[in-house]
């Protein structure tokens, strides 16, 4: 049984979609409340740590997509990255923390909270990581945060 079949069998009952956009990438979408279950099953398949956690702001759909990329160091699995994604409401972005499933989510989830304001319930230390402690603006990776561009000043007298 190849990896795709294994993944389909393991996750077909809870995934809303399973796609293969590239040879090295498997994309699994689930509903918000099934994220923990899906993550546990992916770990059982051998993808035991995360390469990344990210949030993507989708203001038109009033959602933030939270994406987990899991990888493995085992020889037969290491060529593939498993992407697990779900959507949370933009005005109330709450998601279960996966820190007990993937221990290295500790700083990755904390950064996503810092940058997009996604609240990971059960995360032990949701506090500023990369932003300064006094930050009180909207999270910078939201699309409505505008980068202030400094002009190039050419002064002549």
């Amino acid at each position: 049984m190849n990896l795709r079949e294994k993944i389909e069998e393991k996750l077909k009952d809870i995934a809303t979609s399973i796609e293969y956009p590239r040879p090295d990438l498997i994309v699994i979408a689930v509903n918000r409340d099934r994220i923990m279950e899906a993550a546990q099953r992916i770990v059982e398949l051998g993808f035991d740590h995360l390469a990344s956690v990210e949030g993507v702001d989708l203001p038109k759909e009033n959602a933030i997509e939270v994406i987990y990329h899991a990888e493995s160091y085992e020889e037969e699995l290491r060529n593939t990255i498993v992407e697990l994604k779900t959507r949370v409401a933009r005005d109330d972005p709450k998601l279960q923390s996966l820190i007990n499933v993937w221990p290295n989510a500790l700083y990755l989830e904390r950064e996503t909270w810092d940058m997009l304001g996604v609240v990971f319930e059960g995360h032990p230390e949701l506090k500023r990581l990369l932003l300064p402690p006094w930050w009180d603006d909207i999270p910078p990776l939201r699309k409505d945060y505008k980068v202030k561009v400094e002009g190039i000043i050419v002064g002549t007298k």
Partner: peptide
């Protein structure tokens, strides 16, 4: 340890 290194990514 090897196992920790894998699990912590």
């Amino acid at each position: 340890k090897k196992e920790d290194a894998k699990r912590l990514g």
